[in-house]
Nucleic acid binder design. Structure first.
Lengths: 122, 122
DNA sequence: AGCGCGAGTATCCAATGGATACCAGTTTTC
DNA sequence: GAAAACTGGTATCCATTGGATACTCGCGCT
């Protein structure tokens, strides 16, 4: 099944870093939505649903910082801000989707294990 | 209004869930180490390095709960507790390694984007 | 004058992350 | 014979983060 990798701790750290980067509550949702094309702030907000302004701001700012999205301000009245994935962002989507696919397929197994464990602890 | 997005939000949530599950500071390190074979508590602790007892306990307990590792207690003196990946855990490693590989290859690009951003904000 | 829009800050409180100290039983060391 | 150390853990505490709510700012509408 699994090719046996040499597990260098430093490499694991890199994995850990990127996973932490991407592993918060909103990041993948934002990146996923932006995968469909560029979006404005509130458009994104409504598309995701349940995210507060502050969290969306922090999330997109972080993604911009790491080079995953671009932020373009049109100085119109009222202001208009477009967010779009960069090439790096789109490339990131590939492994993220692979993990997502795994998650989708194995959701049930995890849920079952969890129920079993919680029942045993009781 | 009808969402025009091919990315169903519920699927993105599943991705987000599993990423949050796996996206904390220690989980991938633990799973990565266990990828080499079963390990005892302190063995794991030293192999990882820098993790506190409490965090290792919480991490492995969480992984056990979700069915990614098994925990076997040998009632010897002194006690001996072995942790080992389940099939589910080993399967999870596949997409996680894919993401890890991406992370390893693109570390530099992210770091550069970050430096550029920080310099611009300044 | 007052309201609302768009894209944010500012403020505050709750939840979490994580370091440190402590527990229990046995064996080793001084 | 007392102290320490090994095993795998809790318990406690504080700093950081997550996130809801309220406010800002420039403007156009009524």
């Amino acid at each position: 099944m699994i090719p046996r990798h040499p597990h260098r701790t430093e490499d694991c750290r890199a994995v850990s870093d990127i996973l932490q980067r991407v592993g918060d509550k909103w990041t993948v949702l934002v990146v996923g939505k932006l995968g469909d094309g560029s979006m404005r702030f509130n458009e994104l907000r409504h598309a995701i649903g349940g995210i507060s302004q502050k969290m969306l701001t922090t999330t997109v700012r972080g993604l911009e910082r790491d080079g995953f999205v671009t932020r373009t301000v049109f100085p119109t009245i009222p202001p208009r801000v477009e967010y779009e994935l960069t090439d790096l962002g789109r490339e990131l989507l590939v492994p993220v989707y692979a993990l997502g696919e795994w998650a989708r397929l194995n959701q049930r197994r995890v849920a079952e294990a969890r129920m079993k464990f919680d029942a045993a602890v009781e």
